Simulated assay, not measured.
Amino acid sequence: MQTQGAQEGKTMAIISYLTAIGLIISYVNNSEKKNSLVAYHIRQSLGIILLFIIVSIFLSAINFLVSIPFLGWILQLGTFVLWLLGILSAGKGLKEPVPLFGAYFQEWFKGI
């Protein structure tokens, strides 16, 4: 059986993946009650959101120059898979980095 704090940490970790608003809610809530699981998933979620923004900007720029069929679909599907893996890890209460970039997200955003 999980303690109330552990369950609340899992809940806030999951909320951090639910749009930028959820990320902000988790960040504000975690600034009051420090929870390492929540902080870990805030960093993962922030990285995934920024990666999605960068992919979107890249796709807009590349589509302006040349049209590459399915490139956008593949890159956005990859970002979605990272998001899904992150939220599943949060739901299990684990600190598993998302593939490829997760370790970098932890390093880059360690101040959070």
Rank of each mutant, 00 (worst) to 15 (best):
V55Q: 04
G9S: 12
L37M: 03
G93A: 09
I48D: 00
S16I: 06
A103M: 01
F109I: 01
Q2A: 11
S45D: 00
T11K: 15
K33I: 14
I15Q: 12
V98R: 10
I25N: 00
M12A: 15
K10S: 04
I24K: 06
V81A: 11
L65M: 15
G5H: 13
S26M: 09
Q2Y: 09
F58C: 09
N63C: 02
P99F: 14
I87Q: 08
T79S: 14
I68L: 09
E96W: 15
N30L: 06
P97Y: 10
T3L: 07
L18R: 05
I87G: 05
G5F: 12
G5W: 08
L85W: 06
F101E: 05
F101C: 09
S26N: 04
F80T: 13
Y104S: 02
L84T: 11
F105L: 01
K33V: 15
E96H: 14
T19C: 09
Q2T: 03
L59G: 01
N35M: 09
E8A: 15
I87F: 03
L85H: 01
E32A: 14
V55Y: 08
V28K: 12
I68E: 05
N30E: 06
L77V: 09
K34W: 03
T79L: 11
G91L: 02
G93Q: 08
S45P: 03
V66G: 01
Y17C: 10
F70I: 15
T3C: 04
S16F: 03
F109H: 05
F80A: 14
V81H: 02
L75E: 06
K34V: 10
V38C: 00
V38N: 04
R43D: 06
L51H: 02
I62K: 12
G22N: 10
G9I: 00
W83P: 00
V28W: 08
Y27L: 10
F80R: 08
Y17I: 07
S26P: 04
L51T: 10
R43P: 01
F70M: 15
Q7N: 13
S60C: 09
L100N: 08
